[in-house]
Amino acid sequence: MELSEIKHLAELSKLEFSQTELEAFASDFASLVSLADNIKNADVKGKRVLQSIKLGDLRKDETKKSLPCKVILANAPLAKKDSFVVPRVVE
């Protein structure tokens, strides 16, 4: 796998790597992809893709009591006035 492709995956994954780490990943990835490639030999003609949850089994879409804001925010690294605080993202 090209280093540029590993860099693209790191971007998708929101992860940063040093050049040495990226090179190590490239070698790992060759092995990981060859494991995953075994699936290509499977004959799945006519098989439908499985869904983990049947939508009919879901509960009704009703408002229910949920955890209070204070509890949700208790583990936030930075919170203010019932909100998570992040840097400004609009120009």
């Binding site: 995953a36 699936i39 290509k40 499977a42 799945v44 098989k47 439908r48 893709v49 499985l50």
Partner: peptide, 13 residues
């Protein structure tokens, strides 16, 4: 399709 969907189909198999 080549990996994830195929794996879901193998799960069914």
């Amino acid at each position: 399709d080549a990996y994830y969907n195929k794996a879901k189909a193998v799960q069914g198999l």
